[in-house]
Simulated assay, not measured.
Amino acid sequence: MPIDAAAATGAAPNEGRISWTHKDVILYHLGLGAGRPPTDADELRYTYEKNLHVLPTFATVLGFKGGGGLDALPGIDIDLRAVLHGGQEVVVHHPLPPEADGVRVLSRVSDVWDKGKAAVIVLESSASLPDGTRLFDSRSEIFVRGEGGFGGERGPATRIDPPERDADHTVEVATRPDQALLYRLSGDWNPLHADPDFAKAAGFDTPILHGLCSYGLTLKAVVDTVLGGDVARVRRYRTKFAGVFFPGETMRVRVWDEGGTLYVRTSSVERDDAVVLADTVVDYAG
């Protein structure tokens, strides 16, 4: 079996040391669509090194630098065409700096769940500065088609519904047709997001946008619309990837504010409000 659950969960954490500069941060933000309009002060905080802010979702691309990808972990040998991102969570302990050197990243497979026709690999990572300051914890749920049925536990079933009222905020964000090509420069080179033939073999008519791009784009919309552009207010951000999104579509982000917790739902405007991100929660500081 390409996934050896016992080997994957029993292995020691994979340790890496990573560094980044303001160029990495700016490229990531551009991959989310930041910088439109390019001279707008609210956008320049994401795209100009002077007083650069760092979205907490930048943490999700740092794993590619730290050797935390699935291909670097024991017991995992899978076909990328069968892989979809199932869920993501980032817990922020300290605002991410625009530049850092020697950041310690620990990555491990904490669980492998058996969903019958598929497996879900739970990948956990944590990062800290050289002086020991904790930066963030990250948790990814990777859905792998055709790898279930090995007799493992199904894992928890969780659903988070927003309040039963109209959203307090709704924002629509247009994406570029080449959004995935730009985003992948931050480290996620899965050909599913660039190669039309690969996408068709995976069951899609055309390459799809990275789930983590939708994840970051949604948080940027939330920060800009609800949190006054202050990235440091984000404490925790989690979601389930409920559907695909195609580059060039418009994202509709609805937000319900419950005071300290935001419930969020992201959908595609062009495809009759098809849900892209569900069970989404942002915990924030006042």
Rank of each mutant, 00 (worst) to 15 (best):
D137Q: 10
R165T: 09
R134Y: 00
P196S: 06
I76E: 01
E172M: 13
P207Y: 08
V253L: 06
L129T: 03
I142L: 12
S110H: 07
V92D: 04
K220T: 11
K65D: 06
E270Q: 15
S268C: 10
R235Q: 15
A274T: 12
G229F: 03
V122S: 04
D283R: 08
R45D: 01
A100C: 10
T133I: 07
T39F: 14
D283N: 07
S125V: 01
A119H: 05
V281E: 14
A7E: 12
H22E: 13
R235L: 12
G102R: 04
S107M: 11
E258Q: 12
V255M: 09
W113C: 02
V269W: 02
P156A: 02
G10R: 03
D168F: 07
V275T: 14
L219C: 04
D131T: 02
D161A: 15
L44D: 01
D79F: 11
T9Q: 05
L80C: 02
Q179F: 05
V171Q: 06
G216N: 04
D188I: 08
V234K: 01
K50T: 12
G35M: 02
R176G: 00
L129H: 06
A194I: 09
D272L: 04
V275W: 02
Y263W: 12
D257P: 10
A194Q: 11
G31W: 04
I142A: 02
S267A: 15
V105L: 14
D273N: 15
I121T: 02
E153V: 13
P13S: 08
D224S: 13
Y46P: 03
P130R: 01
D131L: 11
F204M: 06
S214I: 08
P130N: 11
E164I: 01
F246Q: 06
A174R: 14
S268A: 15
K200D: 00
K200I: 05
L123M: 12
A118N: 10
N190C: 10
E99Q: 12
Y284A: 00
T250Q: 05
G10M: 08
A34T: 09
A199K: 09
R238H: 12
V61R: 00
G63C: 01
G146C: 11
R176P: 03
R176F: 08
L185D: 04
G31P: 10
R17D: 09
A11M: 10
I76F: 06
L185G: 01
L62S: 12
V173Q: 12
R139T: 13
M1K: 11
W113G: 05
S128L: 06
G228E: 07
P2D: 05
I76H: 01
L62A: 13
R36V: 15
A278C: 07
D24Y: 01
G67A: 03
L192P: 03
L277Y: 03
K23H: 15
V105M: 15
Y48G: 01
V234F: 05
I26R: 07
